[in-house]
Design a protein around this nucleic acid. Structure first.
Lengths: 356, 356
DNA sequence: CTGTTAGCGCCTTCAA
DNA sequence: TTGAAGGCGCTAACAG
């Protein structure tokens, strides 16, 4: 007379469903695994109904332990509070979810060696793969060893020319970005160009500077001045990076021969550069042109609106995950930021010669 | 002669360690679980050495299946690309990690009903608890039923006065915030105040407006104009919200009796309000005062610098997780934003009477 | 088509 | 102090 009731507080298991439906566990398992053609319609219905009635949900833990896949992937980001990152996370999560994966998130706050620990922790939890929203350097050996031993896939965001560039990676083409930028600045007459980064320098910082160097060398020029502000700042607050940019401007614009253009490693630094320039009584872009990188919304809000290199963050995150969970074959995995010209760049103040 | 080798490609298990150390699995298990007093020193060493040699790491999956805890918690956020959220994630992750937990992240992109699915998915993966970086409305019943059935803890970020306010929640005191704001505006002579929000309205939006209402009612006044911009925008790009603010300004400032102050539901909207005001040829704050909410870095960069209510996002995220994984007893779980006065607020243009 | 069974790696009695 | 055994929920043979 009394309806079957799962023992109080316990989640119904595949056994409960089998009993309720009057079939065996393997039948239920087959049903669960989509091998529905193995069940006769009546059975199928009975199982579906029983599962529904019991509110049955398969245990991911047990499936993961038994089978090979947990349908979980990890995503390790350099710094979640870096404003260029969340949209990458968003792209990655969207693609992961599309493919039926859940996302483990891990923030290493620019402490690169934490990537190893966090990877191991994820492996212990049984992830099927790990995406790194940055290029591993130094610790890549340890990570790669751990992941390959555990048989988990990886995907990296690497700069152009990286040894890892290829299938398991998405390339951010800093070089191509800087080339566009130099073309723009050169046309405006700029010949004396500085570069500003800071203590939180990632691999990107170096590669953007390199890109600038290469593009200028093609025009037989070199980067006039480079400043890496050494002051550490709290990444929980963007303001620190703006301040860092301000300080950099004070240093770079105090050089005997003043640069006519300053490139920042990112938009936050560039906003700071503008503030620093203003502090020195210089007009942007009349006295000095300033360029950012990322194209955050702040780039349009600051005055003057910032000329910058727009990074397709969402697509990068999406593709990064595609590499991991999809069948990214013959996909163009290289993303080149595009130059967005606004008001912070203009003709070089003393135009010596437009055709050297 | 040949040293023991784990069968190729297989992770070493507790059995491998036991065999390698010449002890039984339960001994290794005791060692793993920190019950080291049960082992004699020599055994302890042998086990440690064997584990080390094999590169043994316990399987979280098996532990989760066997025991009750997976040491994983979920965090569901309304929108990871909303700039006020990442710092909350950061706070939550820091606290979770401190307590030895990994973090499942899930973004519902303001589709509130997704909270149920995502909660269920997390429960299936065996999380020990779920933190919601927003107040559940409408679907709270389904979520609560699922979590309580599965025995997983929950923590919510709720507005003041919410039914869930209490142990399992952290309160964002929008009301107290708006009270400070009204005091500030009132002192400046503002009597005609508008409020702007948008189509992505969260519960916060309503509660901030309510807070404004209540604070004004205490002064026998009411909110003069409210506009909720209906245009949906892509949350992958903050610019949409700024545009939304711009549109709102055009509407609100076109009222026959022009408001002397506009409050925005957040800083992005406020930035848009400023742009809209400028577009109408109005000066901020001379012709109209504008106030934001959140205190993002953009608030200091926009011109004029924005008066806003600073939300302690990191602490909120940290405490939210504390509620879940810590022993948050007698902790003050209510966070009241603090007013930061900058340049976007000033005396009301036509000061009728300062003491009504 | 359906049922039985042997583990996946670990923890926890219970005995020795 | 250590060892043997059972089972967490599920899947994948294999047997009917």
């Amino acid at each position: 007379l009394e309806r079957y009731k799962p023992s109080t507080g316990r989640r119904p298991t595949i056994h409960d469903v089998a009993r309720e439906a009057g079939v065996s566990v393997s039948t239920v398992s087959n049903w669960l695994s989509g091998r529905k053609h193995l069940l006769r319609p009546r059975t199928r219905e009975a199982v579906a109904e029983a599962a529904e009635r019991l509110g049955y949900r398969p245990s991911g833990l047990a499936r993961g332990l038994r089978g090979q896949s947990t349908r979980v992937v990890g995503l390790i980001v350099p710094s979640i509070t870096n404003p260029s990152i969340p949209v990458i996370v968003r792209g990655a999560e969207d693609r992961a979810r599309e493919a039926g994966y859940s996302l483990f998130l891990s923030n290493i706050d620019r402490q690169w060696d934490l990537a190893v620990d966090h990877s191991l922790a994820m492996i212990d939890k049984g992830v099927d793969g790990i995406a790194f929203a940055f290029a591993l350097t130094g610790v890549s050996g340890a990570v790669l060893e751990a992941t390959s031993r555990a048989g988990v896939d990886v995907a990296f965001l690497v700069p152009r020319g990286d040894v890892l560039e290829g299938e398991r990676s998405v390339t951010l083409d800093n070089e191509g970005a800087m080339r566009q930028l130099v073309e723009h600045l050169w046309r405006l007459g700029h010949r004396c160009i500085g570069f500003a980064s800071n203590a939180a320098a990632t691999a990107n910082s170096g590669h953007r500077l390199d890109g600038l160097r290469v593009a200028l060398e093609e025009r037989s020029t070199e980067v006039y001045a480079v400043y890496e502000d050494p002051v550490a700042f709290d990444h929980r607050d963007d303001w620190g990076e703006i301040e860092s940019g301000r300080r950099s401007a004070l240093v770079l614009l105090a050089r005997p021969r003043r640069p006519t253009a300053l490139c920042a490693v990112n938009d936050m630094m560039a906003v700071g550069l503008i503030r620093g320039a203003h502090e020195l009584g210089l007009q942007v872009p009349e006295d000095v042109s300033i360029v950012g990188f990322d194209d955050l919304s702040i780039a349009r809000v600051v005055q003057p609106a910032l000329t910058t290199l727009a990074v397709p963050g969402y697509q990068i995150g999406h593709r990064l995950m595609e590499v991991l969970v999809g069948t990214a074959e013959n996909e163009p995995n290289r993303f080149t930021p595009t130059l967005v010209v606004r008001e912070s760049t203009g003709p070089a103040p003393t135009t010596r010669s437009l055709d050297p």
